[in-house]
Simulated scan of single mutants.
Amino acid sequence: MPTPSHRAGEPVRAGIPEHGRVPRYYAVKTLLLALIEELGEGVALPSERELAERFEVSRVTFRQAVSELVLEGRLVRRQGSGTFVAPPKLVQPLALVSYTEGMRSQGVEPSRYLVTSEYMAADERLAADLGIEPGDPALHIERVLLADSERIGLESTYLSARRFPDLLSVFDPATSLYAYLTQQVGIVLAHAEERVETVLATPREALLIGTNPAVPMLLLHRLTRDDAGVPVERVRSLYRGDRFSFVTQLNL
């Protein structure tokens, strides 16, 4: 098969094990990455047969390389049409900004649709996070997140029902909760603690988001406080790892 380029910084350089032997599927993956750069977003790959012959590998090896690139969000399969170069991942800043702000800053139109809107009794952990007593009423709003009508995430938000008694009846779940809290309620969001981890979606989550359960997900836990240090919300956000990435700025 053709020899992958070994220029510093290229994927195959980072993927070479100490013994120097590169798995054949990984070499194919590197060649496909170069091809993806040449083709550009939305362009279909040549046929599996053609590329397997060009790279001098079996179709099984070729499919393994393609499958990894699909999971990573570099390629997308379309039933009955073929495999295409995926669009760039969406980027959300790890900062105290809303999902709406993050998407619109990239020229993407955000939207949401409601899955769950309910009152619930806070367990000990939720009560501690929200600064209320165990058993006190809490609000739970669960929404699917969309970007240009594409489902990319699932968000669950928890708030104190006593602090926001009218929220479920007056808040439009298709809009930004941060905008409602700041503009309509007068809350000043001042501080947030956020933790990010990788997980696999549950069958229910995968169905709601419309993704393959095998695709890695990015899970964010956020606890937001107002300018008096009082907890405002606890949020659990699940994003498709093949369509989303996060960015932050670090300063000394």
Rank of each mutant, 00 (worst) to 15 (best):
residue 134 P to W: 06
residue 171 F to C: 02
residue 131 G to V: 05
residue 143 R to Q: 06
residue 117 S to H: 06
residue 179 A to C: 01
residue 130 L to G: 08
residue 175 T to P: 02
residue 120 M to K: 15
residue 161 A to S: 04
residue 131 G to T: 05
residue 103 M to A: 07
residue 150 E to I: 05
residue 169 S to T: 10
residue 121 A to D: 14
residue 156 S to V: 14
residue 128 A to T: 09
residue 123 D to L: 09
residue 152 I to H: 07
residue 134 P to T: 03
residue 108 V to G: 01
residue 176 S to I: 02
residue 133 E to R: 13
residue 155 E to Q: 13
residue 103 M to Q: 08
residue 167 L to R: 11
residue 152 I to Y: 11
residue 116 T to E: 08
residue 120 M to N: 11
residue 171 F to P: 03
residue 166 D to Y: 14
residue 149 S to N: 06
residue 135 G to N: 09
residue 110 P to I: 11
residue 108 V to H: 02
residue 119 Y to S: 14
residue 178 Y to M: 14
residue 102 G to N: 10
residue 151 R to P: 14
residue 152 I to A: 11
residue 107 G to V: 00
residue 178 Y to V: 12
residue 108 V to D: 00
residue 118 E to V: 15
residue 137 P to A: 10
residue 167 L to N: 08
residue 141 I to E: 06
residue 176 S to K: 11
residue 112 R to P: 00
residue 150 E to F: 04
residue 153 G to S: 09
residue 100 T to I: 03
residue 153 G to A: 10
residue 162 R to C: 13
residue 177 L to P: 04
residue 139 L to Y: 09
residue 133 E to P: 00
residue 129 D to S: 14
residue 168 L to Q: 07
residue 128 A to N: 08
residue 131 G to K: 07
residue 178 Y to Q: 10
residue 139 L to H: 14
residue 139 L to G: 06
residue 117 S to R: 13
residue 174 A to H: 11
residue 103 M to S: 01
residue 140 H to V: 12
residue 117 S to P: 00
residue 117 S to V: 07
residue 173 P to L: 08
